[in-house]
Design a protein around this nucleic acid. Structure first.
Lengths: 267, 267
DNA sequence: AGGTGTGAAGCCATTCACAGCG
DNA sequence: CGCTGTGAATGGCTTCACACCT
C-alpha cells in the first residue's frame, strides 16, 4: 500500500464507500464501543458480524473500506476499529445540532440535552409558539423560528433536525440552510428542496409502518393463494438469542410536528 | 393480462415488488392523498414524480408493479392509484399498535392517540415504572410490561413499537412476539432476534446523524485533498422550490428509551 | 491452522429508450 | 401526438470462495 497523507487517504477512500456500508459502519461502531466498555480488546469478523446481524463476508468487506487493520489468523483490535470508523464517519469533529419544532418529538429530542456520548450537542431550539419562546427545554431556551438564520450562524450549527408539521417544514428548512446548516434530518413527511451542498436524510414513521403492513399483507395473501393455513416457523417466542437476527430494509422515513402530530397522513 | 382472482393477483404481484419500491409507494400514497384532498383527479408521471423527488421513469416502473392503471397519452386517476396502493400495502385492514416504553419518545408516539387518519390505531401502552402504570397517556392507560403477552393477545395487537432503553429491548420484543405481534418497529439501538414469521424494522437516530456526519466529512476532505476551497453550488438558500429534491439513502435506524434517553451511544 | 482481505460472480435496483396505445 | 408501460442495458451492492498472511 503506497504512502499518502492521512487527510488525502481519508478523502479518497471515503468517496468509494457505498452508502449502505456507511450505515453499517455506524452500527459496528456502537457494538465496538460496547465491547470496549466491557473491556474486550479483540474481536473476529465472525463475532462482530453476529452481533451486528450481518454475515461475516459483508462485515469484512465493510471494514476493508477503512484500510487493512485486522491481523490474519487472529482478528481485529477493538480500539483500532473504533478509531478508524470514527475517522471515516467524521466523528472527530463536533457537529452542533439545532432542533426546530418543539412539539412532542422535538421535546423528546431536546430533552436529550446534548446527543450522544459525544459528537452531536444540541445547541439551539426553535418554535413558533409565543408561549414557548424563552422557555428552557432540556436546559436550553427556545428561540423563535424567525431567528433561525442568525442563531444558527452565531452558534455555528451544522446539523438541523426538523420536527415541525409538514406545512412548516420547507420554510424551516430554507431558514436552516440560510443559517449555514450543512445537513438536515427531516422528520416531517415532506420532500424537501435544498441546494446541492446540503445533505438531507428523512425519517418517516408512517412509511415505516406501511412497509411493515405490506409484509404482513404479503404473507397473508400468499398463504391464502396457496390455499393452506400459516405453516410458519412459530417457535421460540420469548427465548432471547434463538431467532434469526432482524435485518432491516432500505429507506428510512418518519413524520413529526410541533403541535402534537407526528405528521402522519394516510388518506 | 390474464384473468386471475384478486387475492391471488395481489399475492403474486406483491412477491415481486422490490423493497425499495414499496417504500416509495408509501410516499406516492401520501402525495396522492394530498392531491385528492385538494380536489385534483388526475396526474401525470411527470407531476407525481416531481412531487415525490424521483425521476419519472422510476415512478412509472414502481406504479407498474400495481398493474396497468394509467391511461396512455393522459396520465393516472388519483383515486385509482390511491386504492391500488392501499391494496398492495395492506392498508385495507386495521393494524392495531402497541407502544412499549413510555419515555420521551414513547410519550410522543402515544399522544398521538391513534396513528394516521386511518389504519394504525394505538391500542396499548406498556412501561415498567410503577408510577406510570394505570396513568392515561393520550387517553390510554399504561399497562405493565409483564402483561404484554396477555394484553396484546386480548386486544389483537399486530404491530409493536419498541421505545425502551436498549437493555430492555430484546426482552420486550420477546414478550411482544409471545403476544402474537407480527411486526415490530424498533427505536432501540439493538439488533433484535426474532422468529422468522416476525418482521422488524429499525429506526436509529444515532446512525442517521452519523451518516450525515460522514457526508460532511467526505466533502470537507475531498475539498482539502483537491487543494481548493469549496467550489460548491452555493446559491438559492431560502428559495423554496429552487434546489434539487433530497433523496435519502438506505438503512433507517434510531434509538429511544423509557428513561429519557434516545439510546444513542458513541464511544 | 485459522482468519483476514479481495477479485470475481451473481443479484437486485435504477436508468434508458422506445414500442404501444389512447 | 403524448404519455404510459416495459424489455434491455447499466451500475452498485452482496455473496462467494480462495489466496494470503500470521
Amino acid at each position: 500500500m503506497p504512502a499518502v497523507s492521512d487527510a488525502e487517504d481519508t478523502a479518497v477512500r471515503a468517496k468509494q464507500i457505498p452508502e449502505a456500508a456507511v450505515a453499517r459502519l455506524a452500527v459496528y461502531l456502537r457494538i465496538l464501543s460496547g465491547l470496549a466498555e466491557q473491556g474486550t480488546t479483540a474481536v473476529s469478523s465472525e463475532e462482530l458480524s453476529a452481533a451486528a446481524g450481518v454475515n461475516s463476508a459483508k462485515l469484512r468487506k465493510d471494514l476493508s473500506y477503512l484500510g487493512s487493520y485486522g491481523t490474519r489468523g487472529v482478528g481485529y483490535e477493538v480500539q483500532v476499529l473504533v478509531s478508524q470508523i470514527e475517522r471515516i464517519l467524521g466523528l472527530t469533529r463536533q457537529h452542533r445540532v439545532a432542533v426546530a419544532g418543539i412539539g412532542n418529538l422535538g421535546h423528546a429530542l431536546a430533552n436529550y440535552g446534548g446527543f450522544p456520548g459525544r459528537g452531536f450537542p444540541v445547541e439551539a431550539l426553535f418554535d413558533l409558539d409565543p408561549d414557548l419562546i424563552g422557555v428552557p427545554v432540556g436546559g436550553l431556551p427556545v428561540s423563535h423560528m424567525d431567528d433561525i438564520p442568525r442563531v444558527c450562524s452565531e452558534r455555528e450549527i451544522s446539523v438541523g433536525i426538523i420536527a415541525t408539521p409538514p406545512t412548516a417544514a420547507q420554510s424551516v428548512c430554507d431558514r436552516l440552510v440560510a443559517g449555514g446548516v450543512q445537513c438536515i434530518l427531516n422528520f416531517a413527511p415532506v420532500v424537501l428542496q435544498v441546494p446541492a451542498h446540503v445533505e438531507v436524510r428523512k425519517v418517516d414513521l408512517a412509511v415505516e409502518l406501511q412497509i411493515l403492513s405490506f409484509h404482513v399483507a404479503r404473507r397473508a395473501d400468499s398463504a391464502a393463494g396457496a390455499g393452506g393455513g400459516t405453516p410458519e416457523n412459530q417457535g421460540n417466542a420469548g427465548l432471547p438469542g434463538t431467532g434469526r437476527p432482524a435485518d432491516n430494509g432500505s429507506g428510512g422515513r418518519n413524520g413529526a410536528g410541533t403541535d402534537g402530530g407526528l405528521g402522519m397522513v394516510v388518506r
